[in-house]
Each structure stands twice: as C-alpha cells, then as structure tokens.
C-alpha cells in the first residue's frame, strides 16, 4: 500500500516537470481573447508547445503572480503593467527580436505607464462607451447627453451598467468633469452620489460579459461597454450603435509583457514578435472585435471589404484631450470597490 502511495506521490510531483521538458511557452491571457488558429500556427512554425491559461481580471492575474507562478508571456492592462514595472516584476523586451513597434498607432505606444515600450508591446486596445439601440434612442440625444443619459429616468429598466468599480466611477468622474484618476475626497464623494442617483434613475442591471449576448439579442436599449465588445455586438446586430461621449472616456491598452521570472524569455520575445505581425494581429482583432494596435490592420479591417467596415465602435478615438488612461492606484481601487458595493446594493 505504502509503495503504491509513494509511486503515486512521485508521479504527481513529476507531472509538471515532464511538461517542462519540452520547449514550452506559458501564456496567460484573458478568456476568449484570441483566435485559436494563431496559437496553432505558432506552435507549428516554431515546433513548440504553448501552455495557454486564462484569467478574468487583472487582479486575479496579479494574485497568481504573487504565488511565484512562472509565466513567459502575460497580457494585462496598462495600469497593471505600471504596477508590475514599479514592483520590478517584469523584464525588458529584447528589441532585437521585437522590432515591429514603430508601425503601431500613435495612441497605443510610448504611453506613460511604459514610456519607451521597454517592457510591453500592445496586444489590443479599446475605449469605453455607450452602446444603444438606434431604433429606440435617437443618436442625436446620445451624442448630446453623453454619460448623463444614465441619469435619465426615461430609460429606467432599459439599461445595463458594467459591473466594474473603476469603469463605473470613470463614467461618474467624467460626467462631472473630473479626472478618471482623481484622489480628491470631495470628487470621489460627488461621483459616489452621481452613481447612486444613476442607480435610482434607471435601475440598471449590473452585468459583466453577459452584456454581449444580451445586447446582440436586443434585450435592453442602453449599455456601458468596451468598444471591442461593442464592435462585435454591432457586427451581429446592426440596430446597435456606439458613442464615445464628448465628456471624455477611458482608453485602455492590453499589452504583452514578460515576467522577470519567465523560464523561457527568448521564446517569449519570439511569441510577442509573432503576435505583432500584421496578419496575426488582424486574425486576432477580427475574431474578438477589439482594435489592433497596428495602423495598417486597423485601416484594413475598418476599410472597404474589411470585417468591421462602417462599424462605429471598432476604431477607438485617439488624440482627444479628455480621454485618459487609468493609473495604478491600489488604495483608490480599494476605496472605489467598497463604494461600488454600496451603489449596487442601493444604499
């Protein structure tokens, strides 16, 4: 019995080691955020095995990293990359291998979180906006009101609010004319009150990714969404339209980084270079609806004959001074998440 036990224990200790014996690349990405064919092609071309894991929030990913898990490529969002750089958890990209960065759109490179793209290469990007049913709501009204449309009780019971404290507070901050990164107590209080008013006025359903299927089915008139999801929804339901409010919004970049403790950094750099190649970036962007960082790909997909031709959500707005990136701020995030629970519970 004991022998059997020890054999088994040895087996389970060896199991992960056996996987490492091959040339393996550990990639950690958001769920349903890639064209699987790209992974298959990469494995074939480089004769390696890609071990692909999924996370559903930046914080979940961060928790996993704290446990010393060793990934080769991770694809977190901008503010999380800022934190990882601050905490020395990343290693610089090998610019001898990752060379395609010059051909990227201006709006996504050399951003404050990583000024020279020393550590990160953009994967996909997006902004946050209002998705609405154009057969129910006049586009002129949405343009006019911007975020304040979420305070209009006319739409009571017809709206989805994205269940994420930072996105929801961003809406309130922008509607009130503040910075999305404000730490000012009065401004936070004002935004909290704005959101409570929103909760009372339109009784939204608080959702995350369910919003995608629901809006494709036209279940409600109005939703706070990421532009990438909006592009996908519009491509499935032509009644839907997208608006990035004039009060300004959040622009977010998800970028590829290599953790300091990666076990295969060379292959990781090759993988990043591979993803940056226009044809691969195009496949991914077309599949998921989020914008490619590559200018040519953006033009191609949104141009005549492209998958997102005439799709108002596909290309995020750039160069607008009221649009902002999130900065990393753990205390703010904790504070907002506690207030957000109270908004949702109708306190």
């Amino acid at each position: 019995m004991k022998k059997l036990l020890s054999v088994l224990l040895v087996l389970c200790l060896l199991a992960p080691a056996a996987v490492l014996a091959d040339d393996v690349l550990n990639v950690y990405n958001w769920g349903e955020y890639i064209d699987k064919q790209v992974l298959t092609n990469f494995q074939k071309e480089y004769g390696v095995k890609v071990n692909y894991s999924l996370f559903s929030s930046n914080e979940e990913m961060y928790t996993k990293l704290l446990s010393n898990a060793s990934y080769d490529v991770i694809i977190p969002s901008d503010y999380m990359i800022e934190r990882l750089i601050k905490e020395n958890k990343l290693q610089p990209l090998d610019k001898g291998i990752v060379t395609d960065l010059d051909s990227l759109v201006d709006g996504v490179k050399n951003l404050p979180y990583d000024p020279d793209n020393t550590y990160s290469a953009p994967y996909l990007w997006q902004s946050v906006g209002i998705l609405y049913d154009s057969t129910k709501i006049d586009p002129a009204v949405v343009e006019e009101k911007g975020w304040d449309i979420f305070l209009d009780s006319e739409y009571s019971g017809h709206a989805y609010m994205y269940d994420s404290e930072r996105d929801a507070f961003m809406v309130a901050f922008k509607a009130l004319g503040y910075s999305a990164n404000t730490e000012n107590a009065d401004e936070i209080e004002a935004a909290y009150n704005w959101l409570r008013e929103m909760d009372k006025a339109i009784h939204p359903s608080y959702v995350t990714d369910e919003v995608i299927d629901a809006m494709i089915n036209g279940e409600k008139w109005l939703a706070l969404v990421y532009s990438g999801d909006a592009a996908y929804i519009i491509s499935e339901n032509e009644d839907m339209a997208y608006c990035a409010p004039k009060q300004g919004t959040n622009v977010a970049v998800d970028a590829m980084v290599i953790p300091a403790n990666a076990s295969n950094p060379e292959l990781a750099n090759k993988f990043i270079a591979y993803i940056l190649q226009p044809e691969n970036s195009a496949m991914i962007s077309e599949e998921v609806g989020y914008a490619s960082p590559n200018a040519d790909v953006l033009a191609e997909l949104s141009g005549p004959g492209g998958a997102y031709e005439g799709n108002s959500a596909y290309v995020p707005r750039t160069g607008y001074e009221k649009d902002e990136l999130f900065h990393d701020n753990e205390t703010l995030k904790k504070q907002l998440s506690e207030l957000w629970i109270k908004v949702k519970l109708h306190e």
Binding site: N26, Y52, S53, S67, Y71, D213
Partner: peptide, 19 residues
C-alpha cells in the same frame, strides 16, 4: 492551480464571451 492549469470549471468561469 498553477501556471497553465485549467480544469473544466475554471475554463468555463474565465470565458469572456459565452462559447
């Protein structure tokens, strides 16, 4: 679970869009 390890439940939970 560690790097690259997903069981069925974890796969289902991390889906961004319903697959």
């Amino acid at each position: 679970a560690g790097v690259g390890i997903n069981n069925i439940s974890m796969y289902v939970y991390s889906m961004k869009r319903y697959n």
